[in-house]
Simulated assay, not measured.
Amino acid sequence: MQTPTKRTSHSVYNLNYHLVFVTKYRHCVLKGRIADHLKAVIPTICTRYGWDQLALEVMPDHVHLFLSAPPTTAPMVIGKTLKSILAVDVFRTFPTLKRRHFWGSGLWTDGCYYGSAGTVSAQTIAMYSANQKEA
C-alpha cells in the first residue's frame, strides 16, 4: 500500500502514524457490538478531522489504527482527540460498560503508542495490524 503525497495550502506531505491505545486495566471489552461500533465510529472521526484512515484493527483490549494526517496536527493531538471522543461515545452507547468495568475511571489508559511510517513501511504496519487477530 503506497500512500500518495497529499497537499495543504502550504505544504506537501506524506505522514503516516501507527497508533495503539489500550483499555484501562487491559479489560477485554472491545469485542462484539462494541468492536463493531468502534469500527463504524473511528472512520467518521477521522474524516471529520481531515485524517485518512489507512488500516484499523480492534482487539479485545486495544485498538491499532494506522492513519495519515497533515503536518499541522501533532500525533499526540490525534491520540488524545480519538481517545476522548471514543470514550464519551462508547460510554453513552453502552452505559452498562462504565458501571461494570470502568466506574470511577476512563475507558483508555493514559498512554498511547505512536509510531511513524513512511511509504516503505506503511504496508508492513497495515499487514501487522491485520495479522494481530491471528496471533
Rank of each mutant, 00 (worst) to 15 (best):
Q2T: 12
Q2K: 09
Q2P: 04
Q2R: 10
T3W: 05
T5A: 03
R7L: 05
T8M: 04
S11W: 02
V12K: 03
Y13Q: 04
N14P: 01
N14R: 14
L15S: 00
N16R: 10
N16P: 07
L19I: 04
V20I: 14
V22F: 04
T23F: 06
Y25Q: 02
R26E: 01
H27P: 06
C28E: 15
C28L: 09
C28P: 11
G32Y: 07
I34G: 03
D36I: 13
H37N: 10
H37Q: 11
K39L: 10
P43R: 05
T44H: 09
I45S: 01
T47R: 10
T47N: 05
G50Q: 01
Q53R: 10
L54M: 05
H62Q: 07
H64R: 02
H64W: 14
L65M: 12
S68E: 05
M76D: 15
V77N: 08
I78N: 03
I78L: 11
I85G: 00
L86K: 06
A87N: 00
V90K: 05
V90F: 09
F91L: 02
F94C: 02
P95H: 09
L97T: 08
R99L: 11
H101A: 04
H101V: 13
F102M: 01
F102I: 06
W103P: 00
G104K: 07
G106I: 03
G106E: 04
W108A: 03
T109Q: 13
G115Y: 14
G115R: 07
A117C: 12
T119I: 14
T119M: 10
V120F: 04
S121P: 05
Q123C: 02
I125Y: 06
S129I: 15
A130D: 15
A130N: 13
A130W: 14
Q132W: 10
Q132V: 12
K133A: 06
E134T: 14
A135Y: 15
